[in-house]
Computed example of a mutant assay.
Amino acid sequence: MYFWNISKLKLDLVANKLTTLCDLKYLIATLALLSLSVTYSENSNLFDYLSTLVDICVLTFGTWFCYRVNGGKTSKDFLRRYLSIGWVVGIRVIVFSMPVVIATYFLFDFAGFEVLGDATLLDVGVTLFFSSFFYWRVFVHMKQVQLTDEKQAEFNK
């Protein structure tokens, strides 16, 4: 299971080296992370729900675009590619987004905006930005794997 090395992962995907056990590991890890991300309480407000709605829309369209770039109905190993690339990209986005998010919230707080406590439009914007960024990167990597796979198939003819 890869946590960081997207280049090696893509090579292994093209070489068809990942197994169904690998798929299961990526699925479990991804679902475990997702289950930690959303919690509501009686203090939840409209922006909490709007942020979740935005994230679900980005997730749906992002996944659909990844499916299309992988070949659509004739796609090869879509879930394997999607889950493994998504896992590595997700780890990278988390690592690189944390300093940006902390700095952004600090600057907004310093400027006098209320950023701690109830969810705000800023939270919705951060969700939209990083969810979109995540799916854009997954799309790019899946496209590279698909193109490499097509070139390899053409070479083998």
Rank of each mutant, 00 (worst) to 15 (best):
S37G: 06
V145N: 04
M142P: 01
T19I: 13
F139H: 09
L59Q: 06
V140L: 11
V54G: 02
V14S: 00
L59E: 05
L107R: 05
E42Q: 14
Y105N: 10
N45E: 01
W64H: 10
S132R: 02
G90P: 11
K10F: 13
I102T: 08
G62P: 09
K157I: 10
A111R: 04
G62Q: 03
K157P: 09
L53R: 01
F130V: 03
T74W: 06
V138A: 00
L83V: 10
Y26A: 05
V100I: 13
L46I: 07
V95W: 12
R92A: 15
S37M: 14
V101M: 08
F3R: 13
T52W: 09
T39C: 08
V89A: 04
L9E: 07
L18C: 06
V95K: 01
H141K: 03
F108I: 07
I94V: 10
F155N: 15
D23W: 07
S44T: 04
F108V: 09
K10R: 15
F61A: 11
K8R: 15
V38A: 11
M142L: 12
D109F: 08
Y2K: 11
D55G: 08
G86Y: 05
K73C: 10
F106C: 02
V93Y: 10
G117Q: 04
Q146E: 14
F108R: 02
F139A: 00
T148H: 13
T60L: 08
A103V: 09
F130T: 01
A119P: 01
V115L: 02
T148R: 15
V89S: 00
T39W: 14
F134I: 05
T52Y: 13
E42I: 15
L9A: 09
Q144C: 08
T39I: 13
I85A: 03
V101A: 00
F78I: 03
D118F: 03
M1T: 10
W64K: 02
